[in-house]
Design a protein around this nucleic acid. Structure first.
Lengths: 354, 354
DNA sequence: CTGTTAGCGCATTCAA
DNA sequence: TTGAATGCGCTAACAG
């Protein structure tokens, strides 16, 4: 059997309570005693049984998740995953609050962060808009000792404890590399459809995409970036306009949301010349466009993994534990029509094991 | 607070022991009593606290992992991950035994399975060679009530409880699709380098690759498959021979191991004509070849994820619990030189958080 | 400053 | 066939 608190107590010649004080860094122990106990811990190779500790504490973790409202499919998928986690709350000892704020609205986000802080959760996860105001609100959480992590989109400079999301520069580079290779020698410029330069993930993707095209595929022109604010209607208008202005477009990289509009524009297009399209996030829309050959590749981040990872990391931070970094790395999934996972065009039945 | 066994006992008007007997399907309860308790459980919505149960039982999970010996980089990486899991044993309440057997050796694998069974582990994971003999040995585990899962390579027909690995057909299709698109209009045949048709993952990849090339890229010839038995020297010889016999080769799909040999052959080649190379498994060798442009894409399965997933699933099976299927789906990672994760050319320092 | 004691939710003797 | 009592490893009152 591995050593327990009793063994420490015996080895150090003190009581359980004192051992507990040392283990949990509680005050009220003479430094000589503390040292004695610490040496005993070291000597017998004690490892705390977290499950037993949580049992004794009847620990529950109140967490708050903040994400953008609106009909962005990816964000709604993220919300679905959070709700799935809420259903697991009893088993996982969590109590999750879900808050939504208008997209790209810095002040609303700041208010939401401050309101959440007032409830003193054990941790908070937020899809960040990259602004000093938001960073300051996150800083206040940090000041109050509340672990805060960014989800999907990070802050450039902040005191957040962790980022649960993909490497967006790498995603942009990957898109660039695929675009360049898929196009081969086919002539024509490429156009980038972004959501907003206010969010860091979009900026990073753009930079990565640009860098690879310029370095590895010189001669391929990139048209001025279209900013569609993740809005399908606006995206459709912008893309349709681009086709009119540049009938020779060879490729489109959609690095934000609003892909419904992009797909509509692609369907409306009355030309035979093929366009290579790379988009982000596997949703019902991009999935069917991929199958139909309207989209060539989709880069995806697994919202379920992100939510589960966020919860694991928040728990670890709340307990001052280390995280398994390899387990928490969110992958950039690349989907072609050939490796689409199980079909969830039909929504999963209620209460299943997702 | 969520209901506990005490609440059940009170609601049913019986003692804790009786509740426990019903909960754990133990004998010695009158069916009338049993029914009373079951109704109480249903009525108050009881959910068992697995952590508390494990604490009371001082539960440890003895698991056995069986994998091929030899210098196959991927398998050694898998072993590294298993050893990392062994180091986490104290925390995760596991006791993992690691057994290696010569690759592609059906009889040795059968013996290892039977030997492992004799130790009566709580679960077993095996990198399977696809043979009825192996399937029968797995069947004996099943008969004895020992959960058994296949790892990396599955059995075609068996009573294994789970497969922890990628969808190899999809992987092959993906390779085919990438190959076809990367090559574009470049002429020339493609060659497939496999390990052995005795393992199911290799067969599945080949079938998927073939299917896509034939359907979506007709006119692209596939040369007869080279079988290198995952041996670098043999692979090098075969690939070099192919280059001599077919100087116009446009692409190579290496769907097994032995990539060191492939890379050596590529380096030796004295032609300027580009060859599109797609391989499996990110190792030190394929990583550097990817960086150098010798390999265009690497399809990878995350060995760490597979091992962690195997352990989670085995625990769940041992406890008769459900698994989060979304969490256990092993992804097909696609790496280009542009989205390589952290560099582990230098082995990670001992005892780090991997 | 330190120790005693009683749980947390569940499993498992041992009696009845 | 049923129940009372004890303990898993740890925390948290409450005394001393």
């Amino acid at each position: 059997m591995r050593p327990t608190v009793h063994d420490i107590a015996a080895a150090a010649g003190v009581s359980l309570a004192t051992v507990d004080r040392v283990l949990n860094l509680r005050p009220g122990v003479r430094s000589a005693t503390r040292e004695k106990v610490e040496q005993a811990i070291e000597r017998i190779g004690y490892i705390r049984d977290v499950a037993a500790a949580n049992l004794a504490k009847s620990r529950v973790y109140p967490f708050t998740f903040i994400l953008p409202s609106g009909d962005n499919s990816f964000m709604r998928g993220l919300e679905t995953e959070i709700r799935a986690a809420m259903r697991r709350s009893a088993v996982e000892r969590t109590a999750i609050s879900l808050v939504t704020v208008p997209p790209f609205d810095v002040e609303a986000l700041e208010r939401a962060l401050d309101d959440a802080r007032a409830t003193r959760p054990a941790g908070l996860a937020v899809v960040a808009v990259d602004s000093p105001i938001v960073a300051a609100a996150v800083g206040r959480l940090h000041r109050d000792g509340i672990p805060a992590i960014t989800l999907v989109s990070d802050l450039s400079v902040s005191t957040r404890d962790h980022f649960a999301g993909i490497d967006n520069s790498a995603a942009g580079r990957t898109a660039g590399s695929l675009m360049g290779r898929f196009l081969g020698t086919r002539p024509g410029p490429v156009v980038v459809l972004a959501g907003s330069m206010l969010v860091r993930d979009h900026r990073d993707r753009l930079a990565g995409f640009r860098a690879v095209l310029e370095a590895d595929f010189p001669g391929r022109t990139i048209l001025p970036v279209l900013e569609g604010h993740d809005d399908p209607a606006e995206a459709e208008r912008l893309v349709t306009g681009a086709f009119v202005g540049h009938p020779d477009i060879a490729g489109i990289y959609s690095l934000g949301a609003g892909n419904r509009g992009l797909i509509a524009a692609l369907k409306m297009r009355r030309t035979e010349a093929p366009v290579c399209v790379i988009a982000h996030e596997l949703t019902a829309h991009t999935r069917s466009a991929l199958k139909d050959g309207l989209i060539d590749a989709v880069l995806n981040q697994d919202a379920g993994h992100e939510v589960r990872s966020a919860i694991r990391v928040l728990k670890a931070k709340a307990d001052g534990q280390a995280v398994l970094s390899a387990q928490e790395r969110i992958r950039i999934d690349i989907f072609l029509k050939d490796n689409l996972p199980f079909d969830d065009a039909a929504p999963a039945p209620e209460g299943d094991d997702i």
